[in-house]
Design a binder for these strands. Sequence first.
DNA 1: GTCTATAGGCTGATAGAC
DNA 2: GTCTATCAGCCTATAGAC
Lengths: 219, 219
Amino acid sequence: MVGNLSALRDPESTRVALMTAATELFAQRGFSGARTEEIARRAGVNKAMISYHFGGKAGLYETILVSSLTHITERLRALVASNLPPDRLLSALLAALVELHRARPALSAMMLREAMSGGAHLSDAALPHFVKVFGMVREIVDRGVRSGIYRPVDPLLTHLTVLGSVLFFFATTPMRERLFREGRLASARAPTPERFIEHLEDLLSRGLAADDPTRRTEP
Amino acid sequence: MVGNLSALRDPESTRVALMTAATELFAQRGFSGARTEEIARRAGVNKAMISYHFGGKAGLYETILVSSLTHITERLRALVASNLPPDRLLSALLAALVELHRARPALSAMMLREAMSGGAHLSDAALPHFVKVFGMVREIVDRGVRSGIYRPVDPLLTHLTVLGSVLFFFATTPMRERLFREGRLASARAPTPERFIEHLEDLLSRGLAADDPTRRTEP
DNA sequence: GTCTATAGGCTGATAGAC
DNA sequence: GTCTATCAGCCTATAGAC
């Protein structure tokens, strides 16, 4: 029998609600700027649940980041493992990034903030998860280069360009939305993720294309 | 006559020292994460000077952003005003960004953080300065398009790609430096701003080039 | 598991002397 | 202009009831 109304709530739903609300606030205000009271209020649960379920604000923060990075890594690993022709890998990567963004729009800003902090809020155990994503994207770019459809660009630099522009676009959405809402950028069309990714894909396919149309076979 | 040792310090140098130290801390830890006590200590001045010279932490923050944005806008305006041939404008823009980065390496992260906050720490008076930079870069890209050396790309989207990847690269330097220092990215060469910009310039000149080599004249 | 009430620490700001 | 000493407010964490 259910003893009271609050018992109707699944404990797991409390965790999820807290993580969802916290992601948005950490993204918008940073680790120090996010208030536990507001996280709890937005999640519709009690403030004390943060300590109970995550051991505190820092635990909640790291839990979000590690679980998200694990999810992203698995998603990208599936991409690399797929037998997609090399010239489709980049498109698939960008599509995956949009898809991941749709599921958690605030994650880009949260990750970007952490990168700018040099990983100051992460335990030693969490840092490798961060590195994995970097390696993953680089690997995908690298395959395109090795297959010969791309000119011999530096995989790390290319990775930084691609992931950087995408994360920047996603993470600065709040600012753009505000500027458009207030009519300060009225002259331009509001850019959607789709339009941006299409633009970037175009830019990359032209910018990375091998000079010589003759393609080497997979090594 | 100089009354005491502390009078040897130019009041302007106090302001500059505070702004320099604060830029680094705001960049690294965000507005809320930066501590006034630490800003003052790193600047080598007394904590109370923040209130005296800037009216408080928020005033110091906004002063830094507005003065930096003003400087950047003027630098870019000079670029647009110059009679550089359109096919050199982008190179000059990127060179200017590197130069600005050298003068204040922490500024990218501070601006990026503010953009992710949607301008929450800026007064209404400061927001237009932010918008101006966006318009400036877009204008430069636009000239390349209008002159016909670039294909008809969307100026705003191109602006976001260019500025986004550059700001991302600069702002995440702390994370990369840490990863290289700890040997977690040992496989790759540490990317310098020069190498990155060269890579980006290459990517853009190929990615933006007009399909038709016939160039239209300036309208 | 959840909630209320409270404690304890930290932080930004300033009054007032120099 | 600068410094010292102090304060008031805020914020996280938790003890203890349910």
